[in-house]
Design a binder for these strands. Structure first.
Lengths: 342, 342
DNA sequence: GTGAAAGCGCTAACAT
DNA sequence: ATGTTAGCGCTTTCAC
C-alpha cells in the first residue's frame, strides 16, 4: 500500500505573507494571533485586517512542530458501539468551544492491544490532552501514560482508580437500584441481558447480582451474554428463547437501551404484554430522560455531563497548571417508564 | 482564552535516533517506513528492529509539514444528529483500514457559515481528502473546493451535482416507494413527520408528495415539521396531536427511525393499535434491515456502503491519480415490517 | 512592544 | 540502493 499522496496543488498563504503585507515581522503576526495582548492595538488591527483579507489560516502542522504540542485533545472511544458516545462527545465539544483547544475523535476497538497501539500513536503527536473511554482497565497503558506530559481523563466506572484523572458513575450501585426497582414493582424472576468484559459491564452484572442475592432470587441461568451485532435483534431473540425455555421469567434488565428496545419489540411480536407479563429495564436512558412519560424504564447516565466534565478537567489542568481532583463521581437516576409500571 | 500549552515533557525518539542506531542516514529510515521496497531487505530489517526496540513513532506534524499533506481524510458530518452517521463512518474506516490514510471525524452543525468555516480550516491543513456529509448544498463551498488540491466526496442525494464526487441514493424515489407501500397496504390519510431544510429532507418531502398527488390524496395539512430536539419525544407528541385534531390520519411516514419509534411509542401509550389503526414507516432502516421480522417498516439506506464507497473514491483518486466517476448512485430498499402489515 | 536567529522532525529533489 | 542538501511554516529563545 505505498502510493505517494499528491500535495495540495496551490500553495496557500502563510504567516510571512501576512507579515509582508502588514509591514511587520512574522513573529509579530504569530503573536497577534495567539497572544493578542502582547501586541499593540494598532498593529493588531492592521494584522487582523490582512488576515481577514487574504484568508490566512494557520498551518497546524507547522504550529505543532514548532511548539511541540498539537493543541488537540484526542477523544478515544468505541464510537461504533454507540455506547452513548454521542452525548459524551457533545459535552466534550461544548466545553472546548470557547477555548483554543480543538477536539479530535478516534474510534478504538474492544481489545487491549489495539487500544494501546492507538494510544501510543496519539501520544507521539503531543496532544494537549487525552480523553479515554476505555473498555477495559489496561495495565499496559499505565507506563505509557505515566511518562506522558499531557493530562489524561478516563470516562469510566468510579470503582476504578484512574490512571490520571477520571469521571464516571457507580455502575454497580446503578444496576442494583434498577433491579430493586423491578423487585419493588413485583417482578420476581429477573433476567439479565448484558455481557461485555469491560469494567462497566462487569459492575452492572455485579449490581444486578447484589440486588437479587439480597432478595434471595439470584439464578445464574438467567444471565445472558449479548453478542456483538445488532442489539435490537438480540433483544428480540432473547424474548423468543425466554418464552420457549424459561417462561417463568417476568422481567429483563438490559445493559443498554437498544437491547431493551429489542426485548420490547420481541414481546410485542409474541403478544407478550409489557409491563404486565414482562417488565423491561434499559440502561443509559438519554433518549428517555426528558420525556414526560417514558415508554422505557431505564438507568439514566449523565453522558453529556461526563463528557463536559472530562473536558473541564483537561482545561483546568491546562490553564491552572496543576492537576485537579483525580476522580469525579456523577449521579445516576432511575427513570421509571411504562415498561415496568404495573 | 490564551494560555500556553505545556509541551510534552520528555523529548521523544526521532527518526535521527533510529538512523544513528541503525548506522544509516535519516532518509533511509524514512524510506524504510514509507516505501519499504526502495530499501534493501537487509537494511530494512535492521531499521525496523531498531524502530521496534526504541519504540519510535513518527511525528505526524513534521511529516505533514515536510510532505505538504497530512495523510488524513477528514470526514465532516453532522455527527450529533445521529443521521446514521455511525454506519457511514464504519464504512469509511473499513475502506481505509489497509491503507496509509487515517480518518478524522469532525462534527459540523446545520448551517452554511459553520460548515464553510470548518471546511476552510480543514482545507488549510492539506488533507489527503475530504468526505462531506453536507446538510445543504452550499454554493459558498464551491470556490473553496475548486481551488483545492484534494479529492472531495459528498455523501448526498444523487439529484445534486457533486462539487467533485458524490455518493448517495435517490431520496425522492425512495420516499415515493415508501408512501406507495403505505397506500398499497390500504392506508389513505398519510401524514409526514419530516422537516429539515437540507436537500435530502426536501427530496423525501417531494417523494412523499409525488406519491400522494398521484393517488389524489395529498393534503398539506398533514405535513409536519420536526423540530430539533429529542426525536423520540416529537414522535410521541405528534401522535397525541393527530389523535386530538386529525383522527382520520391512519399512517405516518417519518424522516428517520427514531421519530418513527416515538410515533410507535406514542401510539402504544394512547392505545392506538399499530398497524391496524395506524401505520408507521421510518427511514434509514439500518437497525432493522437484517432482522427476520422487523418491528418497523422503513426505507433501508445503505449507509455503510455509502461510507465505504466514498472512501473508495478517495483511494482511487489517490492511487490512480485521476478522478473516478463523479457520482455513484446506490440502491435503497423498502423493509416491510410489522408496523404496516395489515 | 517588536524583531533576528535558530530549529522543531521530517521528506522532496537531486545527487551518487 | 543510499546519501546530501535544503526547506516545509511556524514558534521558541534571546536580544533590543
Amino acid at each position: 500500500m505505498s502510493f505517494r499522496l499528491r500535495g495540495g496543488s496551490k500553495s496557500r498563504t502563510t504567516l510571512s505573507d501576512v507579515a509582508r503585507l502588514a509591514g511587520v515581522s512574522p513573529i509579530t503576526v504569530s503573536r497577534a494571533l495567539r497572544e493578542p495582548h502582547k501586541v499593540s492595538e494598532k498593529l493588531r488591527e492592521t494584522i487582523l485586517d490582512v488576515v481577514e483579507e487574504i484568508g490566512y489560516v494557520p498551518n497546524f502542522a507547522a504550529r505543532a512542530l514548532a511548539s511541540r504540542h498539537s493543541g488537540i485533545v484526542a477523544v478515544l472511544a468505541p464510537i461504533m458501539e454507540m455506547s452513548g458516545f454521542f452525548h459524551a462527545a457533545r459535552g466534550v465539544e461544548d466545553r472546548f468551544l470557547t477555548s483554543d483547544v480543538s477536539t479530535q475523535f478516534a474510534n478504538i476497538g474492544l481489545n487491549a492491544a489495539e487500544e494501546a497501539k492507538l494510544l501510543r500513536l496519539f501520544v507521539a503527536q503531543n496532544p494537549a490532552g487525552i480523553i479515554l473511554e476505555s473498555v477495559a482497565e489496561f495495565p499496559v497503558n499505565k507506563p505509557l501514560i505515566a511518562e506522558l506530559g499531557c493530562p489524561v481523563v478516563q470516562m469510566m466506572d468510579t470503582s476504578i482508580e484512574p490512571l490520571d484523572m477520571g469521571v464516571g458513575i457507580r455502575n454497580r450501585a446503578a444496576a442494583t437500584a434498577a433491579v430493586e426497582h423491578l423487585l419493588a414493582q413485583g417482578y420476581e424472576r429477573i433476567a439479565l441481558l448484558g455481557g461485555g468484559k469491560d469494567i462497566r459491564s462487569r459492575r452492572r452484572f455485579e449490581g444486578y447480582r447484589d440486588a437479587l442475592l439480597k432478595a434471595g432470587r439470584y439464578d445464574p441461568a438467567y444471565v445472558f451474554e449479548a453478542e456483538t451485532g445488532n442489539p435490537m435483534e438480540q433483544g428480540v431473540n432473547l424474548v423468543r428463547n425466554l418464552r420457549r425455555r424459561m417462561p417463568e421469567v417476568d422481567a429483563v434488565f438490559c445493559h443498554n437501551d437498544r437491547l431493551a428496545m429489542g426485548v420490547y419489540f420481541g414481546a410485542q411480536q409474541l403478544g407478550v404484554r409489557v409491563p404486565q407479563e414482562l417488565g423491561i429495564c434499559g440502561y443509559n436512558g438519554v433518549d428517555f430522560a426528558e420525556m414526560e412519560e417514558s415508554p422505557l424504564t431505564s438507568v439514566y447516565v449523565p453522558l453529556y455531563e461526563i463528557g463536559f466534565k472530562a473536558a473541564d478537567l483537561i482545561m483546568r489542568y491546562l490553564t491552572e497548571g496543576e492537576r485537579p481532583e483525580a476522580a469525579v463521581e456523577l449521579p445516576f437516576e432511575i427513570i421509571e417508564g411504562n415498561s415496568t409500571r404495573r
